[in-house]
Nucleic acid binder design. Structure first.
Length: 231
DNA sequence: GCGACAG
DNA sequence: ATCTTGTCGC
């Protein structure tokens, strides 16, 4: 089944907080996206996964490092922080980047690559949260999402490229991690190649739409969330 | 014309 | 994402 999505900028504009300069944000996204580097990974054994859960305006961000050989957890970290910016499609990093960076920095071990719950360059301005993280932190990142934000692809296929409807450029790939599981959307964040991103994601997808590192981070964040005072 | 839109 | 019960499937 072929799907295609574009963004309604008026909808985005209607949700932006009073005083937020949207065109300036778009300019920043365009400028940073030019810094995205696509290259093969030199090492990919230790893979971190990042995810964020919420209790009101408190973000609970978790980072988990998985050994892709043994599939075991090598390290993990959780941080809690207040967020003020709302969720708005195409502006996710303005809400979640800081919590993710804090969780990442709390790790005691430096992973070879970071998988992030969200898109990389499969974004109307080529700067999804995984690309934003990779460019600002200067570490290899891969964007892995459960649904498409921008682009067109065939979700029925075993593997299909995600194309930019405006330019025809390839933005990423959508794959199936198994029968009965939904599609997994993959795109480069920075400092990795798409083939490496797809290979590593396939390797770490164990009967789930999400790869092990992100899945573990998701569970950890949700577990930690339970001990946060409701607001 | 209305609706859809990573998390 | 989060708010929420029971219910269907493996």
């Amino acid at each position: 089944m072929r799907i295609a999505r574009t963004i309604n900028e008026n909808y985005v504009k209607s949700r932006v907080p009073r005083g937020f300069n949207l065109s300036a944000a778009r300019a920043v996204q365009r400028r940073l996206s030019a810094l995205v580097v696509e290259k093969p990974l030199s090492e990919s054994r230790f893979v971190a996964g990042l995810d964020v859960a919420y209790v009101g305006n408190t973000a609970v961000a978790a980072a988990v490092v998985v050994d892709s050989i043994s599939k075991s957890v090598m390290d993990s970290a959780i941080i809690y922080t207040r967020v003020d910016f709302p969720y708005i499609p195409t502006l996710l990093s303005f809400r979640e980047l800081k919590p993710m960076v804090m969780a990442y920095k709390s790790l005691g071990r430096t992973p070879h690559v970071v998988m992030i719950d969200g898109h990389g360059i499969a974004h109307p301005y080529r700067l999804g949260i995984a690309a934003h993280f990779g460019v600002t932190m200067r570490v290899p990142t891969i964007g892995v999402a459960k649904s498409l934000l921008y682009g067109e692809c065939d979700v029925g296929a075993d593997a299909s490229p995600i194309l930019d409807p405006a330019t025809g450029d390839q933005l990423g790939a959508v794959i199936r991690c198994g029968a009965g599981v939904g599609p997994t959307f993959i795109s480069v964040g920075s400092l990795v190649s798409l083939p490496d991103a797809v290979r590593l994601t396939r390797e770490l997808c164990v009967s789930s739409v999400m790869p092990l590192p992100i899945l573990m981070a998701h569970r950890l964040a949700n577990k930690a969330k339970k001990s946060v005072k409701p607001q």
